[in-house]
């Protein structure tokens, strides 16, 4: 759990998507790092893994997952974790992350990041789970604040307090998704800046940026558009408050040409560099 292990991940990277494998290998665009969605490389063999092998030789990577089901009341899935560990052993990511959410109960997976109630019971539970995961993987993980579309009546604390308490109590790091904070603030009616005041800056090692969709009565986290202006504003406030933390552009729906992703990352890079100079 070295504090200097992250030196290779700097600046604004992009999420690696299979559509772009060939182009990234051939053209090697100027992005400082790539984030890999772990579960898309759980195959035993084949093209995707072979591509990743090549790409890994060109860029530092991080692994980002959706399968840990950290908040679930089921037993931890150690088969899943063992596969994750072997993926990490093979590709040597700078770090691994997953979400503060649950995706399964009763052995059945819904494959969507469902929110936890922000209660002491859920807090104790998820902290114990993160402890177990970190012990098994032998390293500290990052947990991400998910976008949510419901809140529970029995909440005993706010979501930003919950995220902070989980990180402090389990001694894990934080992947702060600025877009998710913005979406949740709008959906549940709070000020997104509450997050900035609550997060322990030293634990925030990565930031996510993405585009949401505006529906009739709520914002929906599609990762299908450019980052929206108010999210860029919140991002600016975030790096002023927390520092020029490595930042990632995520895009998952209607995935555009690689240049679009690179241009979004350059925008974040400019913001990060402006901050570094003024600091």
């Amino acid at each position: 759990m070295s504090e200097t292990a992250d030196v290779r991940i700097r600046g604004a990277g992009i999420g690696l998507r299979s559509q772009h494998h060939q182009e990234i290998i051939a053209r090697q665009p100027a992005v400082p790092w790539l984030e890999v969605l772990s579960e898309n490389y759980y195959a035993a063999g084949g093209t995707a893994l072979a591509n990743l092998e090549q790409i890994r030789n060109l860029y530092p990577i991080t692994l980002h997952g959706v399968g840990m089901s950290l908040g679930s009341t089921d037993p931890l899935n150690f088969d899943y974790l063992a596969r994750l560990k072997s993926l990490a052993d093979r590709f040597e990511p700078e770090w691994l992350s997953d979400h503060l959410a649950w995706i399964s109960v009763g052995g059945e997976y819904v494959h969507d990041l469902l929110p936890l109630p922000y209660t002491q019971e859920a807090l104790d539970h998820v902290v114990a789970r993160i402890d177990q995961v970190q012990d098994f993987l032998g390293r500290r993980i990052l947990i991400e604040n998910p976008s949510t579309y419901l809140s529970y009546r029995d909440a005993e604390m706010s979501e930003w307090e919950f995220v902070r308490e989980v990180a402090e109590s389990s001694d894990c790091d934080i992947l702060f998704d600025v877009n998710n904070a913005y979406v949740n603030a709008s959906n549940h009616g709070f000020a997104a800046t509450n997050y900035l005041d609550a997060l322990p800056a030293a634990r925030v090692r990565e930031i996510h940026l993405a585009g949401f969709a505006q529906y009739d009565n709520y914002l929906f986290d599609t990762h299908g558009e450019r980052v929206h202006p108010p999210v860029w504003e919140l991002y600016q406030l975030t790096i002023e408050r927390i520092g020029p933390v490595p930042t990632l552009i995520e895009w998952d729906t209607d995935i555009p040409d690689l240049e679009v992703l690179v241009a979004e990352a350059e925008k974040a890079q400019t913001a990060l560099e402006a901050h570094s100079c003024s600091a």
């Binding site: 979400h99 998910p146 995520e250």
Partner: peptide
């Protein structure tokens, strides 16, 4: 059709 190599994402599907 990308041969099922991008089944997972952390975005919502509408």
């Amino acid at each position: 059709n990308d041969c099922g190599t991008s089944l997972h994402a952390c975005a919502g599907q509408a």
